[in-house]
Nucleic acid binder design. Structure first.
Lengths: 243, 243
DNA sequence: AACAAAAATTTGTATAGACAATATAATATT
DNA sequence: AATATTATATTGTCTATACAAATTTTTGTT
């Protein structure tokens, strides 16, 4: 054990080492808490502290009544998001992608929506709640807001395929620019339910405002991605110097 | 208290409410753990669970021996990162930006470096470790790897301003494309030291590979940003449809 | 053999207590 | 008055214990 390290930190590193060295293999169950307590001669609290950290970092997952398992997806899914060409579809290599519609509602404009979309007071807004899945597992939870008069009467069929595609094909709205803000948030009750993860898991939170080719703001959305399974790729091409 | 909620979750929400409603004001000290225990009539473990969650989420910060304080920067710093034009400099509105050089070393190429940079065996690589600060506070911890023959003899002067700028001006290397992979990681001992935050804080982790105008890979870097203080903005412009 | 009930296993939540580490305040010493 | 020393307050780590909740295994009954 190292110098000024706390016990739980030491145990965490030791366990991580076993995971990385494949002593604890992907998908397999690791010894239960009480066994680890005996092995390291520490209390359950200390073992749990280490296990919970590793769970938050995506190395383990735990199931009440069953056990603790090594997360098999150490190689994270890559949701590639190229810059050149707009694509509502998320490219997930070799996985069956699916969009699950949860709800479409018409809601009044809140302050934040008015500010983001610049709609006149009381204009109704369509709220579309969806989950994207890859091989059945939820990868993204998204809530989109689209003013009624931008695309009146968005249907389940529109929402279950690409929203941007439907805007173009069914409503003649052409997205020309998006502005995204990316933050980290921790999953609350709603997010953890939708993404089928534990509360407290660090997640990507992306707010997007989309403008059409006339400069009108046509969509505001909030998206959540599991931090332990998501990896964004951004390619940037820089114009040659003209000096 | 709500239906099937755990105690610590309830207390967390109650405290968050006090923060958001300004009952606990920004920068101010909140009651110590033992007082909260008395108020909610729960054990210290339970109070600490709520406090630690809120700390991870960036609402609070804690100081051993002093107390627990409401984080004043609820409005996060925006590190804007536009796509159109390359910029090594991070634009931080109205803040004094500074780059602090920690070390420049020449290191042998590891497997991951060889793979990322495509260098021949044993080619020496320069490892540059830096911290970016805004108003004195660390915003980014970055470790860059640049092969010796791409830019032989990078100096402190080169590293303390824009690396990409130095590559261009001093070594005639013109960055043409970067590929970034963005993930979430939790701060380990090194990262928490560099970013002056707690271990376990969710952070942005960005791996970048930069290519020059000849298609050679000239830089590999790992960057870390505090998740509780960072907010990336990405603007995307979509080409008009040509159908 | 099939089903139901009970027991065992394992993680989740919570309590109580002890001591360490850090920072500040109060006190004593020179 | 200045400087140590001591005490106090507060967060950090760790132990031990108890029970709840979810899952699996075993047992009992028909």
């Amino acid at each position: 054990m190292e110098k000024n390290q706390s016990l739980h930190a030491y145990i965490k590193e030791e366990l991580l080492d076993r995971i990385k060295s494949n002593k604890y293999k992907k998908g397999e169950k690791i010894p239960p808490e009480l066994e680890l307590c005996k092995e390291f001669n520490v209390s359950r609290t200390t073992v749990r502290s280490a296990l919970n950290q590793l769970t938050l970092e995506g190395y383990l997952y735990r199931k009440q009544g069953k056990g603790t398992y090594v997360a098999d997806q150490k190689v994270k899914q890559t949701l590639s998001s190229t810059v050149k060409r707009y694509s509502d579809q998320i490219a997930i290599q070799g996985k069956k992608a699916k969009i699950e519609l949860i709800s479409i509602n018409v809601v009044p404009a809140t302050e934040i929506l008015k500010k983001s979309l610049g709609v006149k007071p009381k204009e109704p807004i369509q709220r579309i709640e969806r989950i994207r899945r890859a091989n059945g597992e939820p990868t993204q939870y998204e809530v989109s807001y689209i003013p009624w008069d931008v695309a009146p009467g968005i249907t389940q069929e529109h929402a279950e395929v690409s929203l941007y595609g439907s805007l173009k094909n069914a409503f003649d709205v052409h997205i020309a620019k998006t502005t995204e803000h990316i933050e980290i948030t921790l999953a609350d009750e709603i997010i953890s339910t939708r993404l089928e993860c534990k509360e407290g898991l660090p997640c990507f939170y992306i707010e997007t405002i989309a403008e059409d080719d006339k400069g009108d703001k046509v969509e505001f959305s909030r998206s959540y991605f599991r931090g332990d399974k998501t990896n964004f790729m951004i390619e940037r091409n820089y114009p040659p110097n003209k000096e």
